[in-house]
Design a protein around this nucleic acid. Sequence first.
DNA 1: CTGTTAGCGCGTTCAT
DNA 2: ATGAACGCGCTAACAG
Lengths: 340, 340
Amino acid sequence: MSAKQPTIKEIAKRLNISISTVSRALHDHPSIGLRTKTRVKELASELMYEPNQAAIFFQQRKTFTIGVILPFLSEAFFSAAISGIEDVAGKNQYTVLLGQSRDDAEREKQIIDTMKKHRVDGLLISISKHTTSYEHFEMLKRSGIPLVFFDCIPNMPDIHYVACNMVSGTVQATSFLLKNGHRVIGLINGPEKLYASKQRKEGYQIAMSKHRLKYDPSLIVNSDLTKESNCEATRQLLLHKRKVTAIVTFNDYVALDAMQYAHDQNIDLNKDLCFVSYANLPLAQHLKYAPMASVEQHPYLQGQKAAEMLVELLGKKEDEKETPGSYKIIVDSQLMVYNI
Amino acid sequence: MSAKQPTIKEIAKRLNISISTVSRALHDHPSIGLRTKTRVKELASELMYEPNQAAIFFQQRKTFTIGVILPFLSEAFFSAAISGIEDVAGKNQYTVLLGQSRDDAEREKQIIDTMKKHRVDGLLISISKHTTSYEHFEMLKRSGIPLVFFDCIPNMPDIHYVACNMVSGTVQATSFLLKNGHRVIGLINGPEKLYASKQRKEGYQIAMSKHRLKYDPSLIVNSDLTKESNCEATRQLLLHKRKVTAIVTFNDYVALDAMQYAHDQNIDLNKDLCFVSYANLPLAQHLKYAPMASVEQHPYLQGQKAAEMLVELLGKKEDEKETPGSYKIIVDSQLMVYNI
DNA sequence: CTGTTAGCGCGTTCAT
DNA sequence: ATGAACGCGCTAACAG
């Protein structure tokens, strides 16, 4: 029933002209007679001709597809980021091939393989929490597939990336608490190896020294970000010999667990114990307990910037890939104080 | 630097054998000598040869790509659904091309065009709230691109789809309230034209008549699902001449707005006024106010089933597309009572 | 202005 | 057991 897609060949045959004439007519090539041009175009639309992109992609060695690999779409941060990516991609005629690593290094690797097979033109990656080996990224580089990391970036030399300056964000967060009179401030950090954790730690330290307060390492506890670990971390801080009056948490999910735990210990939230976090969560106003303030990481913007960077790399590629350096964009994070 | 991808042609030249021999060797064709086979394979892996899928796709007239179009990834329902889709797709060697319609009919249409251009093998769509014309879907059908709808499906004949039985879900929800002694139950429904709204209305009516209660149309109010509209709907129900003691809401987002509004009117939630909703939201335990119960729609499962259906259609296509009928899968929704 | 030809990378007959 | 040749749909370099 559904007639198979017509080709320029078909059109050429029917019109008794050559294939290339048809091709040129369709492309408004200047050297085609108006008469033939209209004839071609009419028949084309009559037949509902549509160029076979697969063929074009093939011969142009380009798929106009960019792969996006990220941990979880269910995290608001990423669903916002991918919207930014999608918008930029679409504006530049690219489509988005999706892959969720689910924070599984093996899965991430496999997705990369698949994407490579599909000959994506470039890749946008926010690496999984558990990715420790970076071979597959190196491999991509060697294959000449441009790669831009965003948000969660690997500790590798010469990479392109977009990330948030979590150092300054954490300085803001901690300073906010200090200005509000808190002196003993805990930090529930993520896994120690994570770059994101290092930045938070650094920001915390900077803020402390700025206020001429001694940095107490025991006020920083690491969590592997499971609920249990988050609660355990909270417990530790609550048992600290000094009275902790405020806590900065690695992200909102940690904050929720911590606040829940503290509340269950009959602690008056955001009074006896204040929380400041990093905004990954929507619905703040509908939450039972919300942190007093949250560091906004601008996910949509990060996605946008990363996609723009990639698109630029893709454009440049044809001419000269002589720029071996690395592009970096640091998006400023900023503390948002909730007025609830 | 990065050597361009080697081809079988390249390998053939180096080994002084023909292209087709290389091709066959790589495919373990029985009629290739063990000796040449190993030689080929060795060189191939040495050069890190990888078949150019773009070329293969092209000549096989297949991209092994399925397009997924849905309103918002930021809604938990959809991010869960796409995970189900991704898993099934991956298991069957398909990749997922993503497009968010943002509930914009025009955008939806344009995404479909792009996907068609990209020659996706099939499409999975949850239509936007504002899609009223179905031409583009018809067009796809005519092009021979298999189409499976999920969750939000258009009112069209002969379509394949996976959806949740919201009628029975609503019957359960309403009955739950009736069993708990409520007699005057409001329903904040979505836009009237939506199939999802019709189902909810129907379920509401069925539950009422099952309990031999008279159906009062004025207890059903429509919302366009904006915050304002949700609050206005709530207001109407609160002003109802009969005392409304329970409300079924179109979804969790509506419920949140409604509960917030009611709370601001000094109403004791889930006591003076009970809420039951449809589960689109995670973090239920962290919410300030949560409905007493929620109808689970099994998004992951719906995504899975829809993808499986599409994969099957894609497999069948080659042989005979003689089955013009339509596949339907109704996933049972079920009421989850929160024990908070 | 238009036609001819070649080639993109691969699978697939059809020969040998 | 291997090679030559063709075609998928399209673009582009090269003739007229």
